[in-house]
């Protein structure tokens, strides 16, 4: 009876300690679990695979240090794919720290893939703009709306942006975010100009993402870290996404285990009570 009570009332600090331990283990020990690719990840991959040459992609985002474990592998996977397809892309950060994080990441991947700033990607820099008017501007005259990149270079001077006149020359927009905000892009980019949208939310926003996915307002989605891991699998480059998803599995198993334990205790103690009375 005492044990049954104990497993129903484990001190939260013990659970917290266990959690840190199970998350850390896969970081020390490398191994690979099987990964199945979901259709929504495939949807994004296929869209990127078919962006016509002569168009650019835009990677928007508002992620920060807090969600680095999810947003960074997602961004990295998309950037790698665009680099490999030779589709130039523009970084359009919606938060100041996102600008730095995405820029550093692009630099790092570019080194590996042999790409150059200005030719293969540009960073439009963080701007506080009301989305509706900004996208309206992109629809009218893209260079005049964006004006310059984050270093202050006029974007007409950047090779990657040559020939890009309006948002109609944008073949794909991916939004990498921990806070959602896809509905704005749906309204102002997809509904207004028909630009295909990919959505890379952190796992928390995933459930809400199925609504626009179901309504075909987005072409696909990379659900959190696991989405990044699946994308890495499609690209054939095992990265942090695949590695960290092992830690994730362990943490979730711990959680499932604890819930099951608590319920077993609850169930058994109730049965015991029933028997004694």
């Amino acid at each position: 009876m005492k044990y049954l009570l104990a497993i129903q009332t484990i001190d939260r600090r013990i659970m917290y300690l266990l959690l840190v331990v199970v998350v850390a283990i896969p970081m020390f020990v490398r191994f690979q679990m099987p990964t199945v690719v979901n259709p929504e990840v495939q949807g994004v991959y296929d869209t990127v695979e078919h962006i016509p040459h002569g168009q650019i992609a835009i990677l928007t985002g508002d992620w920060g240090a807090g969600t680095i474990a999810e947003s960074q592998p997602q961004t990295a996977a998309l950037m790698t794919h665009l680099f490999r397809r030779n589709i130039p892309f523009a970084i359009l950060p919606f938060a100041p720290q996102t600008s730095t994080l995405m820029e550093n990441l692009a630099e790092k991947i570019a080194q590996k893939e042999g790409k150059k700033y200005g030719d293969d990607w540009v960073n439009w820099g963080w701007r506080v703009v009301p989305l509706p008017s900004f996208f309206k501007g992109l629809g009218k005259n893209l260079p005049a709306t964006v004006k310059q990149d984050y270093k202050g270079v006029p974007i007409e001077k950047l090779k990657a942006m040559r020939g890009i006149k309006t948002i109609r020359d944008v073949g794909f927009i991916a939004h990498i975010t921990p806070v959602g905000g896809i509905s704005d892009l749906i309204a102002f980019a997809h509904e207004a100009y028909g630009v295909p949208l990919g959505y890379a939310p952190t796992a928390v926003m995933v459930a809400q993402g199925y609504d626009p996915l179901d309504a075909n307002q987005i072409v696909g989605m990379l659900p959190g870290m696991v989405g990044a891991a699946q994308y890495e699998k499609l690209l054939g480059i095992p990265g942090n996404g695949l590695r960290w998803s092992n830690s994730l599995s362990f943490a979730e198993l711990l959680m499932i285990g604890l819930v099951v334990l608590a319920n077993a205790g609850y169930f058994l103690s109730r049965a015991a009570k029933g028997a004694s009375s």
Binding site: L19, V20, V23, G66, T67, A69, E70, P178, T202, A203, V204, M205, V206, P223, G224, M225, V226, W244, S247, L248, A251, E252
Partner: peptide, 8 residues
């Protein structure tokens, strides 16, 4: 998944 990712 999301919350664990933060901790990871």
């Amino acid at each position: 998944m999301a919350r664990m990712s933060l901790l990871i």
